[in-house]
Write a protein that binds this DNA or RNA. Structure first.
Length: 104
DNA sequence: GGCATGACATTAG
DNA sequence: TCTAATGCCATGC
């Protein structure tokens, strides 16, 4: 029979869930680990579509430039959540990727 | 099957 | 450092 491979969406869930505490990953990395090196945009769309019941650490996913791509109150929440994990976030919402980037 | 959208990435100025 | 333009790809209508 034909085992239906998990959707890109579900792969993203798995990858995001694998990000360890105190580390962050970029959309491009998520897409890459999910099997689609250039589907970073879809990652953002998927995370946006996440149900509030999901326990995924989506706040550990940021842009490659170490900047929060989610403006508004949600962005502030993300920054706050990252700081609670020991990640240093500048006042401009900038993060040192060289230091916190997740290396599988 | 085609068109529009998007929590991005990269390059140029 | 910041802004603008271009590319790439899955999803939804």
């Amino acid at each position: 029979m034909s085992p239906q491979e998990p959707s890109f969406e579900q792969r993203v869930w798995l990858v995001v869930d694998a990000i360890p505490y105190g580390n962050v990953a970029s959309y491009g990395d998520i897409a890459l680990l999910a099997g689609h090196p250039r589907a970073a945009r879809q990652v953002g769309r998927i995370l946006k579509s996440l149900p509030n019941t999901s326990l995924l650490p989506w706040h550990r996913v940021i842009s490659q430039q170490g900047k929060i791509s989610l403006p508004g109150s949600q962005g502030s929440k993300q920054i706050d959540a990252l700081r609670k994990e020991g990640i240093d976030v500048t006042q401009a919402g900038k993060i040192d990727m060289k230091r916190y980037r997740w290396r599988p």
